[in-house]
Design a binder for these strands. Structure first.
Lengths: 136, 136
DNA sequence: TATTATCCTACCAAATTGATAGGAATTTCA
DNA sequence: TGAAATTCCTATCAATTTGGTAGGATAATA
């Protein structure tokens, strides 16, 4: 149940970009150096953030990555889902990726289900109440 | 960030045992069968639950595992920590297993820290407010 | 003393994670 | 026009974690 480094690094990069004036493109190398992240690994993370509509990019000299929305419009629900996957800790309580447990005959009677439903709701609460702007 | 099967199975087994009359010992085989769990895997899970003071056991004929506390005295904070490990998703916000991130110069300024602190608190809230009895 | 059950250690295959390699595509600018 | 800068993309890899298995040691019962 640890946060993956992918998510950790992705969040740090987003934060870094949120602080940049005028949304100027920032190069991978700069972010990697300042945040102590393996450059190649960060490269792949920024790529998925771009593919999922959170970042824009520009190639060639003076190129790099930049936010395409304002920090207060970037919700942690989105960021977490893109980087870390479903917020629910079991598929049977997932809003977006629901799946029935094949070993569990009755969800209503399942203690795991009952508990994880609460955990999901409380996590969702946090993520919904935080945008990137709130973390600066 | 998925819940491990270890935790899932462990919780199901605890729930199963909580429903047993007079805390009679129940054999691994019975729980495994009723809850659709690999018997050998469940064996190792019950063992760690016993070693961590959540279960008692009895060997030989008529033996098995049983709760040694009442369900309403078994808190989910304990169960989760024993089965799943630290509740915090990053060591730098862990109460019981704190560790400084070596890549992060200032926790107070770290967005990951800020967010995960809230997530930890909200999860802790859920786990503190649930005993095994609440999940029956 | 035979049977029943937990106890314990070691092992294993599959999946995931964090990271690297190396070049293709695109943009800038001299 | 062409060299440099930068993202884009695919493939690969080692280490770790996870879920599960094997096989016998130990203890309790009858």
């Amino acid at each position: 149940m640890m946060l993956s480094k992918k998510t950790k690094y992705g969040l740090k990069a987003l934060t870094y970009l949120a602080k940049v004036k005028d949304r100027e493109p920032v190069q991978i190398a700069e972010i990697a150096k300042c945040e102590n992240i393996s450059q190649k690994f960060l490269e792949s993370i920024l790529l998925t953030l771009r593919r999922n509509g959170l970042l824009g990019s520009k190639k060639g000299k003076g190129g790099g990555y930049y936010l395409i929305k304002e920090p207060n419009e970037i919700h942690m629900t989105t960021v977490m889902r893109v980087l870390e996957g479903p917020i629910a800790m079991v598929p049977c309580v997932s809003l977006n990726f629901y799946e029935k447990c094949d070993d569990c005959p009755d969800e209503g009677e399942c203690s795991v289900h009952k508990l994880m439903l609460q955990v999901r709701d409380s996590a969702l609460d946090v993520y919904r109440n935080n945008t990137l702007a709130d973390l600066l």
